[in-house]
């Protein structure tokens, strides 16, 4: 049998590590302006939020219905979702890369990064 203090120190250490990691992520994510929208791990769209002058709204279809995404200068959010839990809507606006917006039912992740994740759209041919 270990002493209770052993367990308290162990748990406190894990909590401290998590806290440091959270702060580090916050610092690292500052200044990111390019919103990469991933579905099923594939970047389906990249938007440079710093270059937006007006609000851009578009929808993403997923197994749990439609997510409506709203992007404007410097920030992005899911404004409407057809899934029951609405967590992604409640996550609100994101203006830095500290943490992504996630819609688990639709396997959708919106992440602010420093570079556009090269969207590889399905293309049959190229004109020009």
């Amino acid at each position: 049998m270990k002493k209770t203090s052993f367990w308290v120190i162990l748990i406190a250490a894990v909590a401290l590590l998590a806290g440091v990691a959270a702060v580090w992520l916050q610092i690292r994510g500052a200044g990111a302006t390019i919103a990469n929208i991933y579905q099923d791990g594939v970047c389906i769209r990249s938007i440079d939020l710093s270059s937006l002058t007006e609000t851009v709204t578009f929808t993403v279809e997923g197994p749990a219905g439609t997510n409506t995404i709203e992007a404007e200068h410097g920030r992005i959010r899911v404004s409407h979702a057809e899934c029951p839990d609405q967590v992604c809507v409640e996550m609100g606006w994101r203006s830095d890369g500290a943490s992504p917006i996630v819609c688990l039912p639709n396997k959708l992740v919106i992440r602010l990064e420093n570079t556009a994740a090269s969207a590889t759209p399905e293309i049959d041919g190229v004109t020009g």
Partner: peptide, 9 residues
């Protein structure tokens, strides 16, 4: 439909 991309000028 066929998806035809337009080259970025």
């Amino acid at each position: 439909a066929w998806r035809v991309a337009v080259q970025d000028p």
